[in-house]
């Protein structure tokens, strides 16, 4: 059920590991599947598992262990904000509250138009740039004061 484009990308990942260690590519493959589908339905996890020759439950273990995989549908944009202590000291929690208020949703909720899901996240290794926000696991936005958040939301809408 994965597109041939995704499978090609997965093949590139598999090539990084010894020939008998295909399973090493599972994290990358799940990330690619999630990018393709927007989230990770169990069919996608199973396809990845079959493609890599591993038990579906083993792939599910991986998908459910790492935070950035979404096992439930999310909005078009998943906005994750770090609220860990170093960020909190520089406004991470406040930024989260600000986002909640602007979007009218809580953490792990999606705006009614399906556009934005808000998530609270752990340390992203960017504490010097606090508050930090990541869009769809990929794009990191630094120094997110109210004005920058407003700008970001305007851009996403």
């Amino acid at each position: 059920m994965l597109t041939s484009e995704s499978l090609k990308r997965i093949d590139r990942e598999i090539a990084k590991y010894p020939a008998d260690q295909k399973q090493s590519a599972v994290m990358a493959a799940l990330a690619i599947a999630q990018e393709e589908q927007g989230w990770l339905p169990s069919e996608a996890i199973e396809s990845v598992a079959n493609y890599l020759g591993m038990a579906p439950i083993a792939a599910y273990e991986v998908a459910s262990f790492y935070n950035m995989y979404d096992l439930r549908p999310v909005g078009k944009y998943k906005v994750s904000v770090c609220t860990n202590l170093p960020c909190m000291l520089s406004g991470g929690v406040d930024a989260g509250e600000y986002l909640k208020q602007k979007l009218g949703i809580g953490y792990n909720e999606t705006t009614p138009d399906g556009l934005i899901t808000l998530k609270e996240s752990e340390c992203m290794g960017a504490c010097g740039d606090a508050p930090v926000v990541i869009i769809n696991n990929r794009r990191m936005c630094s120094w997110m004061q109210p004005e920058q958040i407003d700008k970001l939301l305007a851009e996403l809408k």
Binding site: A55, I57, A58, Y60, E61, S64, F65
Partner: peptide
């Protein structure tokens, strides 16, 4: 030889 059960999440 077949992994039927796993420990999901963390």
């Amino acid at each position: 030889g077949v992994m039927e059960l796993g420990m999901a999440s963390r």
